Computed example of a mutant assay.
Amino acid sequence: MEINLTQLKKGEKATILDVNIDNIPLKLIEMGCLPGNSIELIQIAPLGDPLYYNINDCHVAIRIETALEINIIKAIS
């Protein structure tokens, strides 16, 4: 089931399926936010934004409005 990145729960892993390149910063793409790469939600900020992810061993903070532009499929536990 395809969902967006904001629906991932802390500690869950997923695979990136699709990225809306027009609406996310180029820096995220350079850091590995690309289809086929694995991603894990590590931490949520105290006020809920940003979200802290591990993308292929690269730690990245992503704001919710950007995370909505990244589609994933959850890894089977």
Rank of each mutant, 00 (worst) to 15 (best):
residue 56 N to R: 09
residue 30 E to M: 13
residue 77 S to L: 14
residue 52 Y to V: 05
residue 12 E to R: 08
residue 70 I to L: 07
residue 54 N to R: 09
residue 27 K to L: 10
residue 52 Y to E: 06
residue 60 V to I: 15
residue 47 L to D: 10
residue 63 R to A: 11
residue 74 K to Q: 10
residue 77 S to A: 14
residue 38 S to V: 01
residue 3 I to N: 02
residue 8 L to T: 02
residue 61 A to C: 11
residue 72 I to N: 04
residue 21 I to K: 12
residue 23 N to A: 11
residue 31 M to Q: 13
residue 67 A to H: 04
residue 52 Y to Q: 04
residue 56 N to K: 13
residue 44 I to G: 05
residue 73 I to E: 15
residue 38 S to N: 14
residue 64 I to V: 15
residue 34 L to M: 07
residue 23 N to F: 14
residue 26 L to D: 11
residue 75 A to V: 07
residue 74 K to L: 14
residue 4 N to Q: 08
residue 62 I to M: 03
residue 69 E to V: 06
residue 27 K to P: 00
residue 47 L to V: 09
residue 20 N to V: 13
residue 7 Q to R: 13
residue 39 I to T: 09
residue 25 P to S: 09
residue 56 N to T: 10
residue 70 I to V: 15
residue 33 C to Y: 02
residue 67 A to V: 08
residue 26 L to M: 13
residue 44 I to R: 08
residue 54 N to T: 05
residue 22 D to H: 06
residue 37 N to P: 05
residue 67 A to L: 07
residue 39 I to Y: 04
residue 41 L to P: 05
residue 70 I to E: 01
residue 6 T to A: 01
residue 68 L to K: 15
residue 29 I to H: 10
residue 70 I to R: 02
residue 39 I to K: 01
residue 22 D to T: 08
residue 35 P to S: 07
residue 67 A to Y: 03
residue 42 I to S: 06
residue 33 C to F: 06
residue 29 I to S: 08
residue 75 A to D: 13
residue 57 D to K: 11
residue 37 N to R: 08
residue 6 T to I: 13
residue 38 S to M: 10
residue 15 T to Y: 11
residue 14 A to E: 06
residue 63 R to H: 15
residue 38 S to G: 14
residue 30 E to N: 15
residue 12 E to G: 09
residue 6 T to V: 14
residue 59 H to Q: 13
residue 5 L to T: 06
residue 40 E to Q: 15
residue 5 L to W: 04
residue 9 K to M: 07
residue 69 E to T: 09
residue 9 K to Q: 10
residue 23 N to H: 11
residue 41 L to M: 11
residue 47 L to E: 11
residue 59 H to A: 10
